[in-house]
Amino acid sequence: MAKIQLNGKKVVIKTNYSIFDLLKKYKLSKKKVAVEHNGIIISKLELKKKYLKNNDKVEIVHFIGGG
C-alpha cells in the first residue's frame, strides 16, 4: 500500500502500481489526458514504466471549456 496525492486529494493505492494502472483504475484514456508525476511531465510511452511510491504527487489534467 502507498499513499499518494492525486489531483490534490489523498488516495491509497496498491504497491507496484504504475501510472498506467492509475489511469486504468479511473477509466481515463491516455489519449485524452496528460500526467505530471512529482512535477515532471510523463510522456505517454513512459506511463507503464513509472511506478508510484509513498507521498508521490500526481496531477492528471485534460482540456475543458475556456476562453
Binding site: 489531483n7 479511473y26 481515463l28 485524452k32 489534467v61 485534460h62 475543458i64 471549456g65 475556456g66 476562453g67
Partner: peptide
C-alpha cells in the same frame, strides 16, 4: 476554439468531457 487545461475530476467518472462534444480532429483546439 480556445480550451483550458484543468485537473480531471477523477471521482466523478460520469462527468461529460469537452472532447465528446467537440472533436479535436475536426476543430483545432
Amino acid at each position: 476554439v480556445t480550451v483550458a487545461v484543468r485537473r480531471v475530476n477523477i471521482f466523478d467518472k460520469k462527468k461529460p468531457i469537452l472532447t465528446d462534444y467537440l472533436n479535436p480532429k475536426k476543430i483545432t483546439y
